[in-house]
């Protein structure tokens, strides 16, 4: 059975890139363009992996992480962000993210990380 990924990303081009790459590797991709949508999706459905950006309109990625971790203690959470400062990485990990990838990233590396948590 194919794994499901919740992808939270507001940038069009990133949505297209990640959806394509993940789909081509056999994942089922669910997309949310903002934090609010992501949380409502998390409320109703279960996913195998959560990949989220941090800078998001309305509700940011950190809150999404925190919510997801609370609801799903075992859910692998991978943050993909252009924020690269230590402080932000720490905050993300503190609220429950398992890993952190900064933009720009190597597509193969991202896939490796996701596989590691499955």
């Amino acid at each position: 059975m194919s794994k499901t990924i919740l992808l939270v990303e507001d940038e069009d081009s990133m949505q297209i890139l990640l959806t394509y790459v993940l789909k081509s590797k056999g994942f089922v991709v669910h997309l949310a363009s903002n934090g609010k949508d992501a949380i409502s999706l998390l409320q109703t459905s279960e996913f195998d992996v959560l990949c989220t950006d941090i800078m998001l309109p309305e509700v940011n990625g950190i809150e999404v992480c925190a919510y997801a971790r609370k609801k799903y203690p075992d859910l692998p959470i991978i943050v993909i962000s252009s924020k690269s400062q230590e402080k932000e990485i720490e905050t993300a990990l503190e609220v429950g993210a398992n890993d952190y990838i900064t933009k720009p990233f190597d597509v193969d590396y991202l896939l490796q990380i996701i596989k590691k948590y499955l």
Binding site: E11, S13, M14, L17, L18, Y20, V21, M55, S82, K83, S84, T102, K103, P104, F105, D106, V107, D108
Partner: peptide
């Protein structure tokens, strides 16, 4: 600025790699 650069760069690099 780094954020502003990183996002389009991630897209350019990601698509080019793909």
């Amino acid at each position: 600025v780094s954020h502003e650069f990183r996002t389009p760069l991630a897209s350019i690099i990601g698509f080019a790699q793909t």
